[in-house]
Computed example of a mutant assay.
Amino acid sequence: MSENTNRSPLTTIEAFEAGAFRVAHVSRQLLAEHPSLPVREIRPATIAFQGPATTHAKLEISTNDVDGVRAWANALGTTVSVAFYDARGVSMAFEHHEAQVTVGGVEVTVTATRHDLTEEELTAWRIAQDRTVAEGGDR
């Protein structure tokens, strides 16, 4: 039989403070260690969950371009994933570049979006997607 234990509001606040401290520490550390890497915007976040004393600490760094994401990924020893989004009905397509790594218990995500796709890139991507769908894959 499991026992349901309630956590006090103060314990939740303390867990949040610990997570916020970790995010701030990792943010300062990364900016100090990599002053030449591009940062357009930085978004630190911490969520404290009810129940067991757990927090989710996150840091999102937006760069000015996809080259910045690659530079951060290289510096942090991780890879870049690229997702392509295509809203054919409104003629809008873009690539979203993202690198993720955990540093000091903080989930760090570096992102940028590329909107200046050439017509050739867009056509090649659409042909590849149409082929995948025709073969029974996901779009």
Score class of each variant (00 low, 15 high):
Val23Ser: 04
Val82Asn: 10
Ala112Lys: 05
Gly51Trp: 04
Thr54Val: 11
Thr11Trp: 03
Ser91Met: 07
Ser91Tyr: 08
Asp116Gly: 04
Val90Phe: 12
Gly19Trp: 01
Val133Asp: 06
Thr11Ile: 13
Pro52Leu: 10
Ile13Leu: 15
Leu76Met: 06
Ala128Tyr: 04
His97Gly: 02
Phe49Pro: 00
Ala93Arg: 06
Val82Tyr: 07
Gly136Phe: 09
Ala45Asn: 11
Ala83Thr: 11
Phe84Gly: 06
Gly51Asp: 10
Glu14Tyr: 05
Asp67Asn: 15
Val103Trp: 03
Ile61His: 08
Glu95Asp: 14
Ser62Arg: 09
Arg126Ala: 02
Asp130Phe: 05
Gln129Val: 09
Leu30His: 00
Thr78Cys: 13
Arg40Leu: 06
Val23Tyr: 06
Arg40Asn: 08
Val103Cys: 02
Asp65Lys: 05
Ser62Phe: 12
Ser8Ala: 04
Ala45Met: 09
Val69Met: 00
His25Gln: 13
Ala124Ile: 04
Ala99Cys: 03
Met92Arg: 13
Val110Ser: 06
Asp138Ala: 12
Glu33Tyr: 08
Gly19Asn: 04
Val133Tyr: 08
Ala99Thr: 02
Arg43Pro: 00
Ala57Asn: 11
Lys58Cys: 08
Ser27Lys: 13
Ala73Asn: 02
Val108Leu: 01
Gly68Phe: 05
Leu37Ala: 01
Val103Pro: 07
His56Tyr: 14
Ile42Asn: 10
His115Met: 14
Thr5His: 11
Ser62Cys: 10
Ile42Pro: 02
Leu10Ile: 15
His25Glu: 11
Thr54Trp: 15
Glu121Tyr: 12
Ala93Met: 04
Ile61Phe: 05
Arg131Thr: 06
Thr113Phe: 01
Ala134Cys: 05
Gly136Asn: 08
Asp138Cys: 04
Pro44Gly: 02
Ser36Val: 13
Thr113Val: 09
Glu98Ser: 11
Val108Thr: 00
Leu122Met: 03
Arg7Asp: 05
Val103Ala: 08
Ala32Ser: 06
Gln129Thr: 02
Val80Lys: 01
Leu30Val: 05
Gly68Gln: 09
Ala32Tyr: 02
His34Ile: 10
Arg131Ile: 01
Asn74Lys: 14
His34Ala: 10
Glu107Met: 09
Val69Tyr: 02
Arg114Thr: 04
Ala128Thr: 03
Arg139Ala: 15
Leu37Met: 01
Asp65His: 07
Asp67Cys: 03
Thr111Trp: 07
Val106Cys: 08
Asn64Gly: 14
Val82Cys: 13
Val80Leu: 00
Ala134Met: 07
Phe84Ser: 01
Arg40His: 08
Val110His: 07
Val133Phe: 10
Thr111Asn: 08
His97Ile: 00
Glu3Cys: 03
Thr79Phe: 01
Glu120Pro: 00
Ser36Cys: 03
Asp67Leu: 04
Ile47Thr: 14
Thr46Leu: 03
Val39Gln: 09
Phe49Ala: 12
Gly104Asp: 06
His34Gln: 09
Trp125Leu: 05
Leu117Trp: 06
Thr111His: 04
Ala32Gln: 03
